[in-house]
Simulated assay, not measured.
Amino acid sequence: MSDAGNEATSVLVTPVWKDSRRLSHYAPELAQALAAADRPVTWVIADDGSGAEEIARLEKVRDEARRIFPHIHLHAAAAHRGKGAVVREAWSGYPRARWLGFVDADGSVTGPDMLRLFAEAEKARNSVIGVRVRTDSTSIHESAWRALRHRGFLLAVRLMLDLETFDTQCGAKVIQGEAFRKVAGRLHEDGFAFDVELLVEMQVAGFSWEEMPVSWEEKEHSRLKPGESWRMLQALRRIQRRILEL
């Protein structure tokens, strides 16, 4: 990343792992939304150790998207560690950014909705997270099994961590840079539990956030496999132990 990039006020990270095909479908839409936004945002495609061949594919995706929106960087982690690890690593590359966001590569949250989170964060002067809630202006399309698993996980989060939120796992968030830098040293979860740990540690540190309903559509080839539910519960237990040690 260039020194100029490190001066970015708003940074959006898309974590990817062997995701060039999925991102190639979403990138034009997100690039168009970024180009149409009335605020400067730097978009970072953050690869989680996919290897040289995948990096070459991502470079092509980036170069195509740059025809629409020029401020795109590709960050390549040295090894595969997980979504949480690569988001933290990419965010840390912008130590003076006011806003740090991330959005999943599958396009389950639209580009315009992601940009609305940045606009709301600026308006509220606070972190804003997307939540999967049906309203007059939002729609949710997910399988019954995924919806049940999601509700069960939220119940576990409330019971184990005393964290009240409509949705910890929606892949669209905008966090105050100040808040992330305050808690970064206490973030250890490298996988999908990164979102929960981030919110819990922000809450412990005295930071709040707004919650904005967004439309969400379940996509094929989800990274969330059946066995992930058990690993997520184990992660909640680890987070709980660390909180109790404070």
Rank of each mutant, 00 (worst) to 15 (best):
E218H: 13
R57L: 10
D113F: 01
S50W: 08
V87R: 14
R125A: 13
K225Y: 03
W43D: 01
G51C: 10
F153A: 10
A31K: 06
T14A: 07
G82W: 01
A205D: 06
A27Y: 02
L224F: 15
P70F: 00
V86K: 10
D63P: 04
E29I: 00
S50Q: 05
D195A: 01
R134I: 08
E189P: 00
I243R: 15
R96M: 08
T135P: 00
V133D: 05
R151W: 04
V86W: 06
Q240F: 09
G5C: 08
E59V: 01
R88G: 07
S92C: 02
R22A: 14
W17C: 12
T135D: 07
A56V: 04
R242F: 09
G49K: 06
L246V: 06
L246H: 15
M232I: 02
L236Q: 04
M202N: 07
G101M: 02
S92D: 08
E122S: 10
W91Y: 08
I72V: 14
T14G: 05
Y26N: 06
A27I: 05
L246D: 14
S139K: 13
V16N: 05
N126V: 01
S139G: 07
E122T: 11
R81H: 10
S229P: 00
Q240L: 09
E120P: 00
F192L: 13
R67M: 12
E89Y: 02
E122P: 01
G111H: 10
R39G: 01
V131G: 05
R66M: 14
S10T: 05
D195F: 05
D106C: 10
E201G: 03
D3S: 14
R62G: 01
S139Q: 14
A37L: 13
H75K: 10
I129S: 10
L159A: 13
S92V: 03
D106N: 12
L159V: 04
E29Q: 14
R231V: 00
Q169K: 11
G206E: 05
T110I: 00
V131R: 06
A56F: 03
L115S: 09
L155I: 08
